[in-house]
Design a protein around this nucleic acid. Structure first.
Lengths: 117, 117
DNA sequence: CTGTTGATTCTATAAACATGGAATTACAAG
DNA sequence: CTTGTAATTCCATGTTTATAGAATCAACAG
């Protein structure tokens, strides 16, 4: 993943509505969720939501799937993983201690995963 | 870390110049790097760079430190960790398989940390 | 106090992004 | 072919963000 791709993915996630949307889809799993349902769930008008769905899709973080007349969106695991790999190479390889949360965190480190970034 | 804080941090990283800047500071370690040096290293005019430095500082990802007449910037480990924790709770708790790169990655997975997000 | 250097703030301009109503497309069923 | 529903695209508007020159501020040396 190139710097520009990572930047695009981060841009897609850098907006409150889209971050909420992303979180919703992450928890909705492989079945995903149809656009209309998302619209009512998040209280976002359909045209606005459609815009955000496209942003996340273009960034490769989610993917659409038509079922009859509704279009279901689900997370794109590979896309997410690519972003994480980029950040990992970026951050961890340069400074391993940033990734190892278990030994360094002072304030809030109860039962968190061992490696973060 | 709240949704808004995470969104702010992601916004700060979602711009090519700032992502490069962040990467540079990550690799520059605890000594950090004075603004002028960064300016020439990245080829960004000082006022523009100053703007980006402020964005990353406000987001809590880097921190300034004055030494004589120069101001050195270095990464803020705690801030970075907070963001990672947020993403971890967000993403991993919902779908653990997204975080476990060791078992699933196909292309570029030699000697990477076990958990990503 | 004066000059010099490192850095920021001010300011104007240009570019990109977000929002949501109106119009449109896509599909299914009668 | 017509109707209804799900979703998108079109478009106008308002808001935010990026850029970089000019002016300013801060620290130190003489």
């Amino acid at each position: 993943m190139e710097l520009q791709d990572a930047s695009n993915a981060l841009t897609a996630l850098s907006q409150t509505s889209r971050l909420e949307l992303f979180r919703l889809l992450v928890t909705s799993g492989d079945e995903g969720m149809p656009a209309g349902e998302i619209s009512t769930a998040l209280g976002i008008p359909k045209p606005t939501l459609s815009f955000h769905l496209k942003e996340l899709s273009t960034a490769g973080l989610i993917a659409p799937e038509r079922h009859g007349r509704s279009i279901t969106y689900k997370i794109n695991v590979d896309g997410i993983r690519s972003l994480m790999e980029f950040l990992t190479e970026d951050c961890c390889q340069g400074r391993p201690e940033l990734c190892n949360i278990s030994s360094t965190s002072s304030t809030s480190s109860n039962s968190l995963p061992t490696n973060l970034l």
